[in-house]
Design a binder for these strands. Sequence first.
DNA 1: TTGAAAGCGCTAACAC
DNA 2: GTGTTAGCGCTTTCAA
Lengths: 374, 374
Amino acid sequence: MTRLVKGPGDARLPRSVDVARLAGVSQKTVSRVLNNEPYVSAEARRRVLAAADQLGYRLNNAARALASGRTRSIGVVSLGTALFGPASLLIGVERAVRDAGYALRVVNTLEGDARGVAGAVESLLEQGVDGIVISEPIDEQTGPVRVDVPVLVLGAPSSFAAPRVVTTGVSTELLARVATEHLLDLGHATVHHVAGPQRWFAARERLEGWQAALRARGLREPSVLRGDWSAASGYAAGRELAGREPGGREPGGREPGGREPGGDAVTAVFAANDDMAIGVIRALVEAGRRVPEDVSVVGFDDIPVAAYVTPPLTTVRQPFDAVAREGIKLLVQTIEQPDADLPAAAGQPVELVVRSSTAPPPWTTPGPARTTSG
Amino acid sequence: MTRLVKGPGDARLPRSVDVARLAGVSQKTVSRVLNNEPYVSAEARRRVLAAADQLGYRLNNAARALASGRTRSIGVVSLGTALFGPASLLIGVERAVRDAGYALRVVNTLEGDARGVAGAVESLLEQGVDGIVISEPIDEQTGPVRVDVPVLVLGAPSSFAAPRVVTTGVSTELLARVATEHLLDLGHATVHHVAGPQRWFAARERLEGWQAALRARGLREPSVLRGDWSAASGYAAGRELAGREPGGREPGGREPGGREPGGDAVTAVFAANDDMAIGVIRALVEAGRRVPEDVSVVGFDDIPVAAYVTPPLTTVRQPFDAVAREGIKLLVQTIEQPDADLPAAAGQPVELVVRSSTAPPPWTTPGPARTTSG
DNA sequence: TTGAAAGCGCTAACAC
DNA sequence: GTGTTAGCGCTTTCAA
């Protein structure tokens, strides 16, 4: 266990002058050493470091920020949710920020929060940050916010209007298209979509990717089912999908086994995240549909349990860490070289993880279930 | 979408003197208004607020911190993991900190991080915080850290040695005992445990709770299986448990159906988190064991998909939000009233969520699966 | 290579 | 109720 020991009672914490005195140099030299500035003799540097160590000196960041006008911290506006995606992104951001030599301030905006993102940004600005990260932006109407620092928006359209704004993120639209195409390639006549809340860009992009994949093959779009990322909402959607099935509780359903391509049978579902996919599967199974023999289901995110649920989930993995790292790199560059052109974001790799929740539709000869498990 | 607009070009940001000038009062009066101090006339207050608004004035936090010696921020040392527990706790902490009028600084310690918690605490202290939260402490050996601010340790033994340290958290030991007792009450002869990494207090406490429940009934402890919180490690443990089974691949296994209380049959498993429980179930099912008919499994955490996996998982829910709120309340109290005695932590409610992954053991007459789903 | 002096924008202590 | 005066502990500028 980390041992925490109390400081020297009420005695004031040492300041840089104290270090200077002990080292026999000026206060300015201490400052130079601590900031790794040039023009300090090796001897002076050594003495300063020794003195600082002996005194247990810690630089006062407030004073430094006041004098320099830079806080060396970056603020992140995050959604207050333990959802795998946002949580993973936040971890990536923290690490990237720290590696860049900055500290991290966090403000969550809970959904439905009155002041929302605008309020969060205001509060970060007041706390003092050199740059702001907006993670997983969502729609909301608020007044304009005056921002005087660079802003990084992770996973937003580049249309995000603001001064000195950079964006990164994978094209989740591409990812969604890959997921949908995987199902079409297996021979499914069409693919149903269980969407996330449309206030989220992430949800809209996935919807668009699904639409694009269908259109590219000249297929009509089945009506979209709306979820809220939760397994419960996926379950509700799954019940509705099961109702549309032959063999389901819908009156006038055809006989099981009599399905054909082009019919109304639901044989393939793309859910906008894994939690909803798991809910969908649960509902289908309860309705007597087998996954993947009767219905294939693809999720999104590759949550830690995805490979171990029944059946192991075919899903799409996002490179959260790479996205965060790339984004912070751009942001820091924009902070430290305000005059340079806004750097362009590089593309991030995409990964479809095929497990056992997808298979050819029931009217084709079933092959063995493919597994690329993790 | 939140609209971000650029500030007034290169013009210096307004300071409180500018507000004072515009409002026709002294700078100190501006300070009083902004800090909600008494002894300001309603008229002066109104004028100051109007002027501040007109100028788009934002308080400079660095200057305030330097002058007052207080930063109004709290730092949290968190594990860099998207695991449901730590992530949920962090969200609770952020919200509680903000509600208390403080800002949040976050530093993650990734497992295996050389500088670990000690380094994280150092860096927070340097950034400037009025208090520190250590979330989900883990063991590690590092030198002592000098800390001059109150510390809150969430989910640690109160033996955590430090000056002005407060702790809260549910007794997860109690929760683990409840989970184990649930299985014993169903008639299982004993309960096996898939433990988390023993560097984590959370994992050790759950282990101890399990042990306590068994001892209280005079039962011997089956050997513990060690996991790392991941579903993959749960899966490995599940395979091993399946191997211990009659009907498993262990040579000399008795006939299925010939099991009796007191035999070596594995009929009940308590996993230290839900991810591992899901992995265990997957392994058992693959080995031909039915859950819950042959083997009951209890998880821990109640992750969002727990109610929707197959079978819906019986698990234990921790009140993360209440724990965080309670802890921050104590911490803030300790910060703001340094002389008062350390306040005591109140207990938090405990909840066993019974779903369908648990049932009486196979040698009893099976009743219908109970469900208290969520 | 080093140091002295002058703030950074606010709060604290005290007068009025 | 309100204003005045000193700093808080650094970085910046400029001189040595």
